[in-house]
């Protein structure tokens, strides 16, 4: 059997914004990646890395300066209408939906926009209203809903046309911890149930770690990491340590650690100091131990810390900055 067509193929994607007055902005530089069907991929990167630009170029909302994009085998330049049939999105930083309409009306409109008649879209949009717990509010205007609910409606509207590929650009931005969690759980459930291909960009590591098996980290327009989340965590598992130092505190030591081991976190209890550091190589470990010895404190315990994606991300982005 032939292998199924990838959900998304991006090759050499480049976007440079030019304008007369300002110097050109190289927002995306020669990015290539492939996403297989049913994959859920996280798009990470600091502010201004080029995530949104990448997504909008793929969807044809911005014109790429160079490169090719295929969604379910449809070429961005030549088969745009087919491409749109296969992809939908929640876009960053905008409303995405009509605030003067109800969730129900928005869902009907945005499925209609994809050419799906009501009798075909309703069963699924009813289902979405249920799983996002919007049923009660389905007849209130969106402007009267809380920001969490508004965001849920926007996400539901992006899922409603049942396109095989869905982009979620910062779907949880501005939501409180609990609402973000709830939205995440709902998405997780849907992802599991439907097996769609989803690309999520977020600054919230919990979102990525929860939903995605694979992450692509972009920095200054280039991909610096493209790997399974599990592999990244594994990479850092062996390097993240928690030291408990007894015999009091030493301001001098704390300063030196903070300077020499970026990302280290320091906390104090009554007569102990807790240091969490990432020590990438053996020589870093020796250097660290030397520092402690000079300070006159004792190492009372060493634990290997369970790393999280946030730390891995920060380390990777910082390392790239030093290189």
């Amino acid at each position: 059997m032939a292998s199924p067509v990838p959900a998304l193929e991006v090759a050499g994607l480049t976007k440079t914004f030019t304008s007369r007055k300002k110097p050109p902005v190289h927002a995306v530089r020669n990015i290539s990646f492939t996403v297989q069907q049913r994959e859920v991929v996280g798009l990470l990167g600091p502010n201004g890395a080029g995530k949104t630009t990448t997504i909008k170029c793929i969807l044809g909302l911005m014109l790429p300066s160079a490169g090719t994009v295929r969604v379910m085998g449809n070429d961005l330049g030549r088969e745009y209408r087919q491409l749109v049939r296969s992809a939908c999105a929640v876009l960053e930083g905008s409303r995405n939906i009509y605030w003067r309409m109800t969730p129900r009306e928005n869902l009907d409109f945005f499925t209609g926009l994809y050419g799906i008649p009501l009798q075909r879209s309703r069963p699924y949009t009813d289902h979405l209203l249920r799983v996002f717990r919007l049923e009660e509010k389905r007849l209130s205007q969106v402007q009267e809903l809380s920001s969490g609910m508004k965001q849920k409606v926007a996400v539901a509207c992006a899922l409603a046309p049942r396109t095989p590929l869905v982009f979620l650009d910062e779907p949880t931005v501005g939501l409180d911890v609990e609402t973000s969690y709830e939205l995440r759980e709902t998405l997780k459930g849907l992802v599991k149930e439907e097996g769609r291909t989803i690309i999520v960009s977020s600054h919230d590591m919990a979102v990525i770690q929860d939903l995605c098996r694979r992450v692509i980290i972009i920095k200054q327009g280039s991909i610096i990491v493209d790997d399974q989340v599990e592999n990244l965590l594994q990479l850092f598992r062996t390097r993240a340590y928690r030291f408990t130092l007894s015999n009091g505190h030493d301001v001098h030591l704390e300063g030196a650690v903070a300077r020499q081991f970026p990302g280290a976190s320091i906390s104090r209890t009554a007569d102990r100091t807790e240091l969490e550091v990432i020590l990438p190589g053996a020589e870093d470990l020796y250097r660290f131990v030397d520092l402690v010895r000079e300070s006159g404190l004792f190492i009372a315990g060493i634990n290997q810390k369970e790393p999280d994606l946030e730390e891995a991300f920060l380390q990777l982005v910082r390392k790239e900055a030093q290189a």
């Binding site: 044809g60 876009l91 905008s94 409303r95 939906i97 009509y98 926009l113 994809y114």
Partner: peptide
């Protein structure tokens, strides 16, 4: 301004028709 324009481009019939 409100940010729905881009979504109107995401339609297989094209924005012009919409």
């Amino acid at each position: 301004q409100v940010g729905t324009l881009e979504k109107l481009y995401l339609t297989p019939v094209g924005f012009r028709w919409v």
